[in-house]
Structure formats: structure tokens, C-alpha cells
Design a protein around this nucleic acid. Structure first.
Lengths: 148, 148
DNA sequence: TATTATCTAAGTATGATTATTAAATAGGAA
DNA sequence: TTCCTATTTAATAATCATACTTAGATAATA
């Protein structure tokens, strides 16, 4: 699942500009770590990224990979799937509902929406596997966190 | 954020039936652990559940809490938020897109849907905080995992 | 070129979760 | 009620991802 060359080029440019805008140095390792994430259409974990980058920079440390990833996350240049840096959370609400997730503190609120419950899933997605449920995730910063 | 008494009663019944159906014993601790999750409208983590249950069963072990939670998850009686039991995954795709997540292996596929991109978020949700994005998460079992 | 941020190395720390044992206990079928 | 078996406990240790520390080396930009 590779990304098209043009798309990759765009992502790399956004990345360089992003760093510059924040006054953060563009280093060889930051560049290659970002490239590794940008290049793969998958959603690699830190370990996978580490292995990939090491082929080009054999001396990178896993430490740098982590530091860089969280930095890029803070700068909004990459995203994480699900609740980042969070432990598992459980939910006994098995009826259809949706979530508002605070990107900062991870707090998650349930809400209902008949409209969202009735969305129909594109055929192309139905073909990926056996669909069990559909849930909308609204992300943002909750009021508590906004104040600080 | 407590649940209404009727709703709680319903959840407890579903739980008891669920266990019976699977031929799994109804023990005091399983009951209280489930109650703890069911009762809180939040999405507590294992540690929080542990503390709650200990007020009623001072001898429960954290071990049992974990064993029970994953058991209930396997039985489909509770759910986890985000990718369960997974490490962090990163994504450089910052343009609007959505996910199909395999509940078994955690594999995540991107897909686009102009329809999903244009959903409008209920006012009640907008009031929870500063909304940044909306993403649809379709969950199911991917083809690979279905085969096994 | 100088300044300063960043990177490496090596070792250590932490926090969540899982596993291991053996002994105690309690569900539930008969 | 009894007995078999699943389950729980307690104590301890292991594992895994992630973070921090310190020191010296290196490289990015003004």
C-alpha cells in the first residue's frame, strides 16, 4: 500500500514547511522518519518505522524515533489512530452510539445520533471484510482542556 | 455520568444471559466487575474499575479484573475504545478520510467518502468542546482474519 | 564559523499488562 | 448435599512500549 509519488512530494513539502513555521530544525533523521510514515499507506507503529528508517540511517535510535513521532504529533504534522498514548478503556454501552474524544486528555463522551446510525457504508468498504458496526468519532479539545 | 436504573438493570440482564449462553460461570467478581463498567457512563480503564470493585469486594485482584475484562470483550458483552490491546499507530494522511478497523488484528485501512466528510455534527456535540475533525470508524473482521 | 539544537549510546525507570505458581474457594450439575 | 471443576487469590516476576538521564559527538542555520 504505497502512496503515489506526487502525493508523497506534497506531504514532504507540508512537512518541511511545518517544521520551518515552528522554528524547528530540519534534520536528516526527522526527514527520514517522516518519510517513512508518509510513504506507507498503512499505519505503522513505532517499531516498524524504526526498522524502515534504519535501512537508510543505520545509526538511528529507537529513542529518536519516539521523540520525533510525538514531536510531529504535537506539531499536527501526523496523527495517531485511536486514543494516543492511552491505556485501554472499556464500555458497556453496546447500543449504537458515537464518541466525542478530546485529543488532549483522551476523555471520551458518548452521544447518540439517529442520522449517524443510518449512514450507509460504501460497497468498496463492505468488501474489506465482515462489517460489524459503524461509529463516528468526533475529535477536538474539550472545554476543560480549552481553558488551560 | 451515571446510567439510569432501568438501563442498568437491562445491561445486567444482558450480561447474565450472555454468560449463560456461553456456558461460563456467573461469579461474584465477574458480576461486580461488569456492574462497575455498566454503571459508569464514562469509559473507565482497568485501574479505575479495579478501584471501584474493591470497595465492594476488597479482595479482588487486578489480575482478575484484567482476565474478566478481556473475557467479556471476547464474549462481546463489552467493547473497548479505539484499537484494543494495541500499540500506537501513526498516520501522515492529514486530509479527510475514514477507517476500516479489523477488530481482531487491528489492521486499519483508509478510505474516502465525500458523503461522510459532509456530515453535520449535532449542536449538543459542538458544545462539548472545540471540534477539529470527524472521522467514521467502520469495525469488523478483515478478510484475512475471516479465513482462519 | 559559532551557536545551539539535536543525536547517539548505554543504561535505567516506569507503567500497563500478562504470566506463573500453588493453595483456597465457590458454582452448579448430579 | 456433594463433588468436580472452573475460578480466584496472593505473591512474585516477566514483558513490552515508552520515557528519562547523562555525556559526548555532530550537524543545522544565522
Amino acid at each position: 500500500m504505497k502512496i503515489s509519488p506526487e502525493e508523497l512530494k506534497q506531504r514532504m513539502n507540508r512537512f518541511k514547511e511545518g517544521l520551518k513555521r515552528s522554528g524547528i530544525k530540519l534534520t536528516h533523521q526527522r526527514l527520514e522518519i517522516f518519510r517513512e510514515v508518509a510513504e506507507s499507506g498503512d499505519h505503522p507503529d513505532a517499531e516498524t518505522i524504526y526498522r524502515g528508517v534504519r535501512e537508510r540511517i543505520p545509526t538511528v535510535s529507537l529513542d529518536t524515533v519516539y521523540r520525533t513521532l510525538w514531536l510531529l504529533l504535537d506539531l499536527g504534522l501526523i496523527a495517531t489512530l485511536g486514543p494516543s498514548r492511552e491505556r485501554s478503556r472499556f464500555d458497556a454501552n453496546m447500543s449504537p452510539h458515537h464518541h466525542f474524544v478530546c485529543s488532549r486528555c483522551g476523555m471520551t463522551y458518548d452521544f447518540c445520533s439517529p442520522e449517524f446510525d443510518q449512514l450507509n457504508i460504501p460497497d468498496s468498504v463492505m468488501e474489506l471484510g465482515n462489517v460489524e458496526k459503524l461509529q463516528v468519532e468526533v475529535r477536538g479539545i474539550c472545554l476543560q482542556c480549552s481553558k488551560k
